[in-house]
Design a protein around this nucleic acid. Structure first.
Lengths: 263, 263
DNA sequence: GTTCATCTGG
DNA sequence: CCAGATGAAC
């Protein structure tokens, strides 16, 4: 089974790139983030036309997540509220950042972790609160008896220093702060999840996002912030995990590249 | 000698369409309106690359006129102020709507007449004031001894009813009011200029502008508002005058088609 | 309907 | 640097 995650930065703008990629890379499930489309605007028909069932959670302009399955997904659940009580969720489902579905006994959780803007901003506080709740969300899924889980998406966090192009990048910059890394460890890794990419590649210099600005991609000034985390059974099963930088080379690309795990 | 006029509705957005057209239609002079670019933003290099000298008068966002010459133009003059005193011009050069240059003894005046919005608006008053001053401008050029003059551009006026797709179009709509038509006659035709298009075509159903909305072009709901007016000597010399609707059929076209006169 | 400026967000 | 929303202009 192949599962991919890709922040497409607008599904409408990137529709051709995404459908072409799916034709070349017929993964079983593609998890996308930043669809930037309401459910009405989402090009379901075009996704269906290339052989995928689409499950979407959109909002106007910002955020938005979706899952495309070659086979139907079951038990599709939207938001933290699909699992947690409204009291616990509070305002953290207002932005559409969470969708989950099951294929062949594998629970796939697709996340668009808040960016956080700058560490002195409200958005950074929101990101930390969101990551805290993510832990509760995943614990609840595990507690429900679900064994095989893939938690993937755009985490907007570089877990380790080698996931950043340069050691000179300030470590109190968003996506690199210890507060974010510690919360990612506490909310995901400490529950038993492992980073599938690191089963196969232990070196640095592998990135999934490059800033549009200052020719970040051409200069390979990237960050590895798109991850696929697996429960131990799936981590053992994993055959490969790789980043496909080809779509990042196209004209009008997303700033992110897709990451694919094969189980 | 071939002279063309074309409201391109943003030279930057239409750059490929315009340069392709120039390659197919190597007119001696192309007069454009609504360049919608400052002089800094104007793609002079791309125009030079297809063999044309560019003379520009731009402003930010709106209006803007330019002339492209296969040979250099001489005595290039910008605005009414190139000919009239500042006291006479007043505020009517704030918007960049006038540029002129000479080729082979022919004075070519390129105009972007104000649209006028609605007849109850300040913009309509501005349009009438502007047309009034245009008369003074042309009289001064004639008085200077210039004999052969081509006054062309987007006039935003349908001179006759047959220049509008439908007789049911209200004649108190901007571009069709008798106030505008009378001023156009007084400021241009009464000075001896003649509409070159009408030397060759006396029937209706020939248009140079179609509204983007309601599939105006597909339904041929057009207006002939882009004109080339000639002094008697040039009118006699004129061999042809035609509207090229081909570029209006392309994707992302200007809402105007080029009009070409051959002398 | 289309373009442009400005704004927000990344 | 890129994307979407909004508002103005045509």
């Amino acid at each position: 089974m192949q599962i991919a995650t890709w922040n497409v930065n607008s599904i409408r703008t990137r529709l051709d790139i995404v459908t072409n990629w799916l034709q070349q890379n017929p993964v079983d499930v593609l998890c996308i983030q930043e669809s930037k489309a309401t459910d009405e605007q989402f090009p379901i028909a075009a996704i269906a036309a290339c052989g995928y069932h689409a499950y979407i959670s959109g909002q106007k302009s910002y955020n938005g997540v979706a899952m495309f399955g070659k086979q139907p997904l079951t038990d599709v659940s939207i938001g933290f509220g699909g699992v947690l009580s409204p009291e616990l969720v509070g305002d953290l489902d207002e932005q559409k950042r969470v969708i989950a579905g099951t294929l062949d006994g594998v629970r796939i959780v697709n996340l668009y972790v808040p960016n956080g803007n700058t560490i002195d901003s409200d958005k950074y506080v929101y990101k930390l609160r969101w990551l805290e709740l993510l832990g509760e969300y995943l614990k609840t899924i595990i507690a429900s008896g679900q064994q095989s889980i893939c938690v993937c998406g755009d985490f907007n966090i570089a877990l380790e220093d080698i996931d950043i192009h340069s050691k000179t990048v300030s470590l109190d910059r968003v996506m690199a702060t210890s507060a974010e890394r510690d919360l990612l460890r506490k909310s995901v890794l400490d529950l038993g999840f492992q980073d599938s990419f690191r089963k196969f590649t232990t070196t640095g210099g592998h990135f999934s996002w490059w800033d549009y600005r200052q020719q970040g991609f051409e200069r390979n000034r990237g960050w590895r912030i798109d991850h696929l985390y697996l429960t131990p059974d799936l981590f053992d099963r994993a055959i490969s995990c790789s980043i496909d930088i080809e779509p990042r080379k196209l004209v009008q690309p997303s700033d992110h590249a897709p990451v694919i795990v094969e189980l």
